[in-house]
Design a protein around this nucleic acid. Structure first.
Lengths: 209, 209
DNA sequence: GAAAAACTACCGGAAATGCGGTAGAAGGCT
DNA sequence: AGCCTTCTACCGCATTTCCGGTAGTTTTTC
């Protein structure tokens, strides 16, 4: 019996996966969490064989959560879940101990295949994801998605909404110099040299819209 | 008995919705289609009471499909579904005969409420969607889509690709001062005061990607 | 062929961004 | 307690953007 934990804040996705797996006798969904915090709590009591992990969680970066889980539970298999426009996250996930990757438009058969494959110790990448990973490597040097802090995400979003440094400083009640520092750090993490490029790359990697 | 048709290319979402509605005796899912073409075929044989329509379909623009369905079947209620909280989609859907709007991170209760509401002849908008609609109306009142010249479009695109003024000047073999003038004119036309805002507004109005 | 629009280029000055650092305080994790 | 990360804030300096004009030369349009 293979035990599964779902981590996804969409009830729709939770229900969908449960339904897909209900008819399979060798697989059992033992839990479903809506946030990273909830998931870590759950894992403290029961350790599943496979985790289906949504990359976009409300309280925590999915990549960070993956890293944390991998540190603490070496044996568990982690399969990332995401929609097509966030495929830039794939390399990031694999670098942080992910065992596979599924797009949310998957078929039931593909889900089962992925579970089988990671349980056998292999990495599973969905067809579509595979293609995109290659494109990604081609178009971006190293094409890896960095981990952003809470503040950095906040400021990235403000920049995407067209706000300038001084305006953001006023809104967040911070020194303009502080905003400049965060902006600089964002530049470094994304390897860009102006805000436009920052927004373009962040968008391409799935951090925006 | 209220009959439902699901139009969504994600099996996950189809299964999720079916599960959510399975326990409700007054509602029945009579079909699930993965594309616009399939949906139109289905509708030629059976007409449901409510259609749950994903805006992002593989073969057809969800808005166009909504329009088509509304033309042919005046009585059916159409509820839009989308994962991205995209500006423009909501008003676009309502203008094309949509009766409501749900985000895919909805709870079961919200889905039921939406179905009830549209069946009673009302429009249902999810909380989050509601806020966005208001924002939308505000920004539309202030500025409508301007007409751009060839050069302006070219430079807008370069800016969206992250290029700075001097770089664009070199690429187009023009004076940097000329680029500045075009950029200034773009600012005026879109009523913005920096490149980030320019790109955001241009994107929202459909000039980019 | 004339008028209108678009494209090009300039000036001067204020404001913001970008670049390379440093550094203390606060909070989390082990 | 000690380490690490994050958040905050600063300095100096160069570059770029932004704002308000003006203006000559094409190209398009009527």
């Amino acid at each position: 019996m293979i035990s599964i934990l779902i981590i996804d804040d969409h009830p729709l996705v939770q229900d969908g996966i449960k339904t897909m797996l209900k008819a399979v006798p060798s697989v059992e969904v033992i839990g479903a969490c809506k946030s990273g915090g909830e998931a870590l709590e759950f894992l403290a009591t029961v350790e599943p064989d496979v985790i289906l992990l949504d990359i976009n969680l409300p309280d925590m970066d999915g990549l960070v959560l993956c890293e944390k889980i991998r540190e603490r539970y070496a044996k568990v298999k982690i399969i990332g879940l995401t929609s097509i426009n966030e495929v830039g996250m794939i390399t990031g996930l694999l670098q942080r101990g992910g065992n596979g990757y599924l797009l949310k438009n998957m078929e039931r058969a593909e889900l089962l295949q992925a579970i089988e494959k990671v349980m056998a110790g292999n990495v599973y990448l969905s067809e579509d994801a595979n293609v995109k990973v290659l494109e990604q490597y081609k178009s971006f040097d190293e094409g890896k998605a960095p981990v952003l802090t809470r503040r950095e995400k906040e400021i990235l979003l403000s920049l995407a909404n067209g706000l300038s440094g001084p305006v953001i400083a006023k809104e967040l009640v911070l020194s303009e110099l502080t905003i400049q520092t965060h902006r600089k750090n964002l530049f470094r993490k994304f390897d860009v040299h102006n805000v436009q490029s920052l927004l373009k790359v962040a968008r391409d990697l799935g951090f925006l819209k």
